[in-house]
Design a binder for these strands. Structure first.
Lengths: 134, 134
DNA sequence: CTAAACCTTCAAGTAGGCTTTAAAGTCAAG
DNA sequence: CTTGACTTTAAAGCCTACTTGAAGGTTTAG
């Protein structure tokens, strides 16, 4: 596969794919004699993974670390475990925050809807105040 | 409260607070005769909310929208509901992705740990490949 | 009264993550 | 064998979200 194809399959622009290679997020791939990059489908997977990880709030550096986790030898095992555990706790926290925020929004919708009949959708408990109860 | 106090209570730099005011994320507050901004504690709440929302992956523009949701009149109700519902689905998706990624990492840790005794922590199923099963 | 620690505005600089541009080579179709 | 789509590199530009700097006014402790 040329870069254009891997790009369209992963939903990432060719220039961005090159940029990721430069950043070390994806390994350099073999080239044709004329210098064209040749990708396999694992490249598509990796790119998709990068995209998703990014959408859920990881920086390219975070993602780099995540991707490094699975490429290690026995000696590196404890460190891998530590890093992974730490990522897990970050993720867990993030999930909790998102869940809280979702509850707030659900409440907002519920209240909004409930009072719609009376023509008054006002004065919801302030999201911000809710959030501050800690 | 002066800007420095509200800043330290919310964990956001004074300059950033001003920047948020400029961006419309927080409303302009009253000033003293000499021009100092005077904040109440709701400002702290709002700033904390902004910070958290940001940490879980919302852009300042997203956050602006979120904050606008609760400040509306009866007429705006349907739109508010629609926006909130949409945000909820975004959040739900994000939670799902995070959950999947957490499972992957947990598996990684488990495998790593399990094989630690045998001195071989190798060849975990590729995170990327896992993720690509769609 | 003065020095340190605040505050003000405005403008410019920085970092992360791309995107665009330029100048040139390559490949596939007709 | 040429035209158009695709690829290459390097460098510059752009957007978001801040951060820093300059130049100056204010407040508070001693």
């Amino acid at each position: 596969m040329n870069i254009g194809q891997v790009a369209s399959k992963s939903g990432i622009a060719p220039a961005t794919v090159r940029y990721y290679e430069q950043r070390g997020l994806i390994p350099p791939v073999p080239r044709t004699s004329s210098g064209y990059r040749q990708y396999g489908k694992d490249a598509v997977n990796r790119l998709r993974f990068i995209k998703k990880a990014q959408q859920i709030g990881f920086s390219l550096e975070d993602i780099h670390e995540l991707l490094e986790l699975h490429r290690h030898d026995a000696a590196a095992c404890p460190e891998v475990e530590a890093r992974a555990t730490q990522k897990i706790s970050v993720i867990t926290q993030r999930i909790e925050e998102l869940t809280r925020m979702r509850r707030l929004l659900q409440k907002l919708v519920a209240t909004c809807h409930a009072s719609a009949r009376t023509g008054d959708c006002a004065l919801l408990a302030d999201l911000v105040d809710e959030e501050s109860v800690e």
